[in-house]
Design a protein around this nucleic acid. Structure first.
Lengths: 141, 141
DNA sequence: AGATGAATCACCCTTTCGGGTGAAGGCTAT
DNA sequence: ATAGCCTTCACCCGAAAGGGTGATTCATCT
């Protein structure tokens, strides 16, 4: 943490120095102002993007259980049908394919088909990965 | 998607117009240049942060339960060792046993042993059930 | 009426999981 | 040093999961 602050400080100091230098050049010579403005703009756009990402990357917090709101549009976006969603829910509860089949009164093969389609739509290779993805996408609590 | 591009385009056009206006003021009057430089810097820092966030927000969603607090005593209560906990964490991320083995630089058989022990301690029959149980027990976020 | 997409099921085949058992090396506490 | 736990790894075997393909039924849309 201390090191992070230090790095940020040094980076900021360098940037300010550079800015001052640019201003100096601006006074002495009468070169194209657009050029300097452009440099400053690009520089600070990059700085802004960097700072923005640094501050939020690892800490993007999305609440799981408490205020989960079911959003059908998200399912439609991925082309996930109702039946597939039911399978997904039971999957996330830790049920095996056979148990899901029994619960929904269909055959094991049907559940396999549904789960295969789910994996395609969620870009997952395994059921655990599918569950993880589904939670990230706010499909399930 | 088209709307997004349109919005970005309009925003960019407004910004460029504003920049041109600033340049014009810079030529006509001889006010403090630092002032304009400052405005440009702040403006583009915000722009950069905004663009950076917009471009990545959809892709870097990390699920974190805010009211999760790592509690080692809970692990001890169940007799779960550090190594087993590491395996549990990676399991919850959707990794296969082979991937976990590669990540921890041990053999597949070792991971199998760890996971088997985990299932016993968590009273789970499957990895998905173990993950579910672990979340219920507040072992993982 | 034909097209489309869903839900259902089957068969085959490969990979992954998981259970059971055994065992060796290392660390720790008694 | 001896017992206990953790970590590591191996082998065998059966169960579960997953991929691929194809087929049927049914409702909806055009």
């Amino acid at each position: 943490m201390k090191r992070t602050i230090l790095i940020y400080g040094i980076a900021l100091a360098i940037l300010i120095s550079f800015l001052k230098f640019l201003e100096y050049r601006l006074f002495v010579r009468d070169l194209a102002i657009e050029f300097y403005v452009g440099i400053i703009a690009v520089m600070f756009t990059i700085l802004g993007a960097w700072v923005g990402l640094k501050l939020t990357s690892r800490k993007t917090i999305i609440i799981t259980n408490p205020n989960f709101k079911f959003d059908e549009s998200r399912l439609e976006k991925l082309g996930i049908s109702k039946r597939e969603y039911e399978v997904l829910e039971l999957m996330a509860k830790g049920l095996s394919n056979q148990e899901i089949a029994d619960k929904l009164f269909v055959s094991l093969n049907t559940i396999k088909t549904h789960s295969s389609n789910l994996f395609l739509k969620l870009e997952a290779k395994r059921r655990t990965q599918a569950i993880q993805r589904a939670k990230e996408l706010q499909l399930i609590p």
